[in-house]
């Protein structure tokens, strides 16, 4: 089937099977390198995208569902103040995720602070676990999100 959707603000179309995974198609047909298919069962979060503005594991989304959808990956944030806010938050918390998960964590942070200006710590503790990680502490990630939110608020007030 031919599927049209918007990827990072640009009209895109691909030829694929209706059951092809969105994550696979983005990587292989649309050259999106920021996401990975790791567990491929919807558990680890390395394939995170913003689907209609909502965080979703793209390995579990079939392409028929992507018809007409608005999809964003971290590439869509390159060169924007939004990504700078996220990076500042990470820096201030001395939070240094590895190459493997950094993009997913950046996109997740952007999604959280775009939705809630002052996210509650209790909720962040759950949301931070969207991207599985055994090498940094979730507490540090939560702090990084809070500081990114602070940065975003300061920018919005300016």
């Amino acid at each position: 089937m031919r599927v049209r959707f918007t990827l990072n603000g640009k009209e895109t179309h691909v030829e694929c099977d209706p059951g092809d995974r969105l994550g696979f198609v983005l990587r292989e047909h649309c050259n999106v390198r920021s996401l990975r298919l790791d567990c491929a069962i919807g558990r680890c979060g390395s394939c995170l995208v913003l689907f209609e503005g909502l965080i979703v594991n793209s390995c579990i989304v079939p392409m028929f569902r992507a018809v007409g959808a608005d999809i964003m990956t971290v590439e869509g944030l390159y060169g924007t103040q939004s990504l700078v806010d996220v990076e500042r938050g990470f820096e201030r918390a001395s939070f240094e995720p590895c190459q493997y998960c950094a993009c997913a964590k950046a996109l997740l942070t952007h999604a959280i602070i775009s939705e809630t200006a002052e996210p509650r710590r209790q909720e962040l503790a759950v949301q931070a676990q969207t991207v599985r990680c055994r090498c940094t502490s979730y507490r540090q990630f939560v702090e990084a999100i809070e500081l990114a939110a602070e940065h975003r608020r300061a920018n919005d007030e300016r």
Binding site: G19, D20, R21, F24, L37, A40, V61, P62
Partner: peptide, 22 residues
């Protein structure tokens, strides 16, 4: 949501039932 219905068919795709109503 399809999170319980669709099973992996390798890394590329998810198996779809013959007739599906979303």
């Amino acid at each position: 949501g399809g999170t319980g219905l669709l099973y992996p068919d390798g890394v590329r795709r998810l198996t779809l039932p013959p007739v599906l109503i979303a």
